[in-house]
């Protein structure tokens, strides 16, 4: 109780001293997203003058440009934002909840379970016969992983148990995915599975946005609801419990929120890794290591990062488009490595 008494004013002081910089951080990120969004709309497979693109966005000018801007580039932009936002905030929440700097949506096996669901539809050719088969199966995959994790957390398993269960679920999903590729009688289908798993927002439509957006939005809202509890959790699980935090509820919010957000994005864009890992780490020093203050900037920075990566993917104009997931992993993997080294040094 004494801890609580001292923690509250400390947090209040933190909040006051960081409020202005926190606000300006978010505004800066918003401005960055605005700039990147403009760039994203003007970059593509064919080049149009900026004025034509802006006019087309408001439905003016050449029909062809309107179609390309509104039905190809706009959904692409919106999906990149939704994916990045979802990944960024779920990474921040999971790292806070599990009090583990290496936590991200991928580590709980949710992404790979969603991917497995999608690959199954490619394997059986369902994705070709029914357009929504793939996204629905991806969400079912994410939901399956979530259900297992939820029941574990409902039984009040420790965070370590949840992480390990997540690793096991992810391992199983990856091996089943490999099995599907192994047994696939058609080399072209294998190609399709691999390319799909690399993650991309190329040639997506507003239908895809409509499909993913409600899930991502619901997921993000659930994730943001954990912010108070995350601050208490920085003191440790027992301390948080003594502060009146319902750990079961927080875990449920985090896990269900993550799988809604990730299931929704994997369903339309394949696997995009490392954003959830990198973004919270980049921002943590900027928000004074206050868990609750990390969520909104992570949402914005995640969106900006994925959008920037998608712009980069389109700027490399040779052969097939570089997949978005490949680019984010290229940034993320070396950072992950650096993180492991730094964490080890600190422990030693």
């Amino acid at each position: 109780m004494t801890e609580a008494a001292t923690a509250a004013p400390r947090r209040a002081a933190h909040t006051v001293s960081h409020r202005i910089s926190w606000l300006s951080l978010n505004l800066a990120l918003l401005a960055l997203i605005g700039v990147l969004a403009c760039v994203s709309l003007t970059i593509g497979y064919v080049t149009y003058p900026v004025t034509d693109v802006v006019a087309a966005l408001f439905g003016l000018g050449d029909d062809k440009v309107i179609t390309i801007v509104r039905e190809l580039r706009l959904p692409r932009l919106l999906l990149a934002l939704a994916i990045g936002g979802g990944l960024g905030v779920s990474g921040a929440v999971l790292q806070g909840l599990l009090r583990n700097p290496l936590a991200e949506p991928g580590i709980l096996g949710i992404s790979s379970s969603a991917s497995f669901g999608a690959v199954i539809t490619i394997y059986f050719g369902l994705s070709a016969t029914f357009v929504y088969a793939l996204p629905m199966a991806a969400m079912a995959g994410a939901a399956t992983a979530t259900t297992v994790l939820y029941f574990l957390s409902a039984r009040n398993a420790s965070t370590l148990t949840i992480i390990l269960a997540g690793v096991a679920i992810g391992g199983l999903a990856i091996s089943l995915t490999s099995l599907a590729m192994n047994l696939s009688p058609n080399p072209w289908a294998i190609n399709e599975m691999i390319f799909w798993m690399l993650g991309s927002v190329k040639d997506r439509s507003m239908h895809d946005v409509a499909l993913a957006a409600p899930f991502v939005l619901a997921g993000v809202i659930l994730l943001l609801l954990t912010s108070r509890a995350l601050d208490a959790l920085t003191l440790g699980e027992d301390a948080a419990r003594s502060l009146g935090v319902d750990l079961k509820r927080v875990r449920a919010l985090a896990i269900i929120g993550t799988s809604l957000a990730i299931g929704g994005t994997v369903a339309v864009s394949g696997g995009i890794g490392f954003v959830g890992l990198v973004v919270p780490h980049l921002l943590r020093p900027l928000v004074g290591h206050v868990a609750s203050l990390l969520l909104l900037p992570s949402l914005l920075a995640g969106a900006a990062l994925v959008l920037a990566a998608d712009i980069a993917a389109r700027l490399i104009r040779v052969g097939v488009e570089i997949h978005l997931g490949v680019l984010t992993s290229l940034i993320g993997a070396p950072f992950f490595f650096y993180l492991i080294l730094r964490t080890r040094q600190r422990v030693e």
Binding site: G44, Y45, V46, W188, N191, E192, K202, D203
Partner: peptide, 20 residues
């Protein structure tokens, strides 16, 4: 490079592609 934008921009009426 297989981008939908390219085909729309070029006023393509018929697109031939693989089933996979």
């Amino acid at each position: 490079r297989g981008g939908a934008e390219e085909f729309l921009d070029a006023n393509v009426e018929i697109l031939i592609l693989n089933s996979h």
